[in-house]
Structures are given as structure tokens and as C-alpha cells.
């Protein structure tokens, strides 16, 4: 039993392992938690599309250390992010800020959904109106009943 638990723990290790190395971590668990949250929102400038929390690049490590240093110095989360943003620009934020320049980015998806609903709904509505059928003309009625009668005769034989 003990061996099994040990094996499970060993097996779980790779999932717990992270780019954050023990010597970087802060002793205060609360601050460390905040540092981790901030790091997840900051882009690594070397291996783009990775946050600095999970990146092994040298610059990412330096930025992680910097984030922790600022936190220890008493900065708020926003101040820390602003500090790094002042040096690397908006690009370093994984979540782009809501500004006039990024309105298209933020609102285009909503706008597209609205357009889709509007157009799709319009098409469906107009199609439903067409479906309300009118009576067949006398000639068509005759043709249909002729076909039906022939079918019945065919089935009986």
C-alpha cells in the first residue's frame, strides 16, 4: 500500500513540476500566490504565446524575479503589471487592455454573433412565411388523385 502511494506521488510529480524554480519562490505563501497569478498574465518575450510562469527562458526567469521583488517592495498587483508594461509595452500583457485602439478586438466577436443572429433569423423567418402553402389548383388536384388511385390499384394486385 505504501509503495502504491509512493508510486502515485512520483507519477504526479511531472504535473506539479513547473518553470518556477524553488530558489525563486517567496517564503510568504500569500505573496507567492499573487506572484504566480501575475506571472500567468504576462507574456514571455522570447517564447511568445507562453506566459512567464511556465516559460524556461532566461528573460522570463528575470521577469519572475522582478515581479516578486516588486511585490516584496509592497507594490499592488496593478503596480507590478504597470511596471513591466512601462518597459515592454502592451505586448507583454496576455490579455490586451480595453482601449479605443482595441475596441475592434474586443467587440468584433460580439458584433459578428449579432450580425449572424440577425441575418440567420431574417432568413429563417422569411422561409417560414413561404411554407404556408396554398390550395392546389383544380388541375393539380386531379393529377394527384389520379396518381393516388393508380398506386392503390397497383398495391391491390
Amino acid at each position: 500500500m505504501r509503495q502504491l502511494i509512493f508510486a502515485l506521488c512520483i507519477g504526479a510529480l511531472p504535473f506539479a513540476a513547473n518553470a518556477v524554480e524553488p530558489d525563486e519562490m517567496l517564503t510568504d505563501p500569500l505573496l507567492e500566490q499573487r506572484a504566480r497569478e501575475i506571472s500567468k498574465d504576462l507574456r514571455c518575450v522570447v517564447c511568445q504565446n507562453q506566459d512567464i510562469d511556465s516559460s524556461n527562458a532566461g528573460v522570463a526567469r528575470d521577469l519572475r524575479l522582478l515581479v516578486r521583488e516588486r511585490l516584496v517592495a509592497g507594490d499592488t498587483d496593478t503596480q507590478v503589471i504597470e511596471y513591466i508594461r512601462a518597459r515592454y509595452g502592451d505586448y507583454v500583457l496576455l490579455k490586451p487592455p480595453l482601449e479605443p485602439a482595441t475596441y475592434a478586438l474586443w467587440f468584433a466577436p460580439i458584433a459578428f454573433v449579432l450580425i449572424g443572429v440577425f441575418v440567420g433569423g431574417g432568413v429563417l423567418m422569411s422561409r417560414r412565411k413561404q411554407e404556408a402553402f396554398e390550395d392546389l389548383g383544380a388541375e393539380d388536384e386531379n393529377t394527384v388523385s389520379e396518381i393516388l388511385r393508380q398506386n392503390e390499384a397497383g398495391d391491390a394486385s
Binding site: 528573460v59 528575470d62 522582478l66 515592454y88
Partner: peptide
């Protein structure tokens, strides 16, 4: 590497 960060260095 701290001055590098001040300069916004990526490599």
C-alpha cells in the same frame, strides 16, 4: 540582466 529589462530587451 536587470538593465536589460529596463531597456525592454527580448534577447
Amino acid at each position: 540582466g536587470r538593465t536589460g529589462i529596463e531597456w525592454g530587451l527580448s534577447g
